[in-house]
Simulated scan of single mutants.
Amino acid sequence: MAAPRTAFSQGRFYGAPTVERRLPGVRLAHLQATKRADHVDEHSHDDAHFVLATHGRYITTAAGPETEGPVLVYNPPGVVHRDRFIDGGGYFLAVSFAPADWRALADAGRGAAIDALRLTGPVARRAALRLTRSLLARDAETLSLEGLSLELAAQALTPSADGDKRPSWLDRAETYLADRFDQPITVADLAEVAGVHPVHLARGYRRWMGAAPGDRLRTRRLERAADLLMRGRDPIGEIALASGFCDQSHLNRQFLKAYGVTPGEFARLCGRRPVVASVQDEAGGAA
């Protein structure tokens, strides 16, 4: 007979907290992973929670296209999954809402997503990264942490209308972007791969992704840059070129705009010391 799946109570994960804050309705923690991938079985959580992987190679079973760092996932209460770090030493932010509090948020809004989500939008990632930075600072005001937590929660409280179904051609286009993000790509290229008219493709991207195809290409490039920052020690200038950006200054501007932190700040959140060129990496030099 198969062993019963582990069901974690609120705020509990396969990880040891480095920082933890308990607020009204939500628990925040930055944790170090404590289990190797082959020791992580299918499990569930009593709470609704968000996980942002901040260091290491993270694999998730949440629905959606495969993404690189920073990986941000929403899991509803009770959903069975096997999210895990491939290598040891992973770190992650966890934002946990007790079931009753999550139901209250859903009832006050438009309802909550019933399936796991892989959140790739800039609003969600910006909120999660700012929340990580505030939590690690250890002196953030409760109001600030609560506000950022609710910004993040809102990303799972606006599900698609009943009867809507994401078109399969969008997955083909997204895969093409993921495979060729470091090359010049046109709307015509995407439309040919997807098998739809360019106008239909542009409209579909805006409806289903909330962004233009060019925005999604930039997102893919930023995902690769963040992944390289999380996993390696290459100079930021080299990471910029490897991710499809013109230079380090270009990456600085786009990274700050999308995530609310510079590449150097993100690298420090991930626990590494960035190697930067002469280009200024602070907000004032990235305008």
Rank of each mutant, 00 (worst) to 15 (best):
R57G: 03
D215S: 15
S134F: 02
F13T: 08
R118E: 05
G244Y: 04
A62T: 07
P274W: 10
L222I: 11
H49R: 06
H39C: 05
Q183V: 12
F255K: 07
L241Q: 15
A108L: 10
L228G: 02
A277F: 02
L222G: 06
R206Y: 12
L119A: 05
W102N: 03
V26P: 03
A156F: 06
V51P: 00
T6S: 08
D182A: 15
S278N: 03
L222M: 10
A277H: 08
R233Y: 04
I239T: 06
R268W: 02
P24M: 03
R125Y: 06
R118M: 10
F255R: 07
R118N: 13
A242T: 11
A127Q: 04
A33Q: 05
F8L: 01
K257Y: 03
A191C: 13
D139W: 00
R130A: 12
G284E: 15
T120Y: 02
V123T: 15
H250N: 12
D164I: 00
R21T: 10
G260M: 02
V26A: 07
M209E: 15
G88K: 10
R12T: 05
A226G: 10
P77A: 08
A140Y: 07
R12I: 09
Q254V: 08
Q155P: 04
K165G: 02
R268F: 01
E265N: 03
I239F: 03
T67H: 11
F8M: 01
M230S: 07
T60M: 07
A112Q: 07
G260H: 06
S9F: 02
E238W: 04
Q254D: 14
K165A: 08
T67K: 12
Y259C: 05
A104Y: 00
R126Y: 06
A258R: 15
A124Y: 13
G232D: 05
L152E: 09
S96M: 01
V26W: 05
H197D: 15
A211F: 08
D179V: 13
T186Q: 13
E174V: 15
D46N: 10
D115N: 11
F255N: 03
G260S: 07
A137C: 01
R272N: 09
D179P: 02
T262N: 05
G56I: 07
R273G: 04
L145R: 06
R57M: 11
H81Q: 13
T61P: 10
H250R: 05
P184S: 13
T132C: 09
W208T: 11
P65H: 12
R125Q: 15
P76G: 09
A161P: 00
G89E: 11
A100G: 02
D189W: 09
P76A: 08
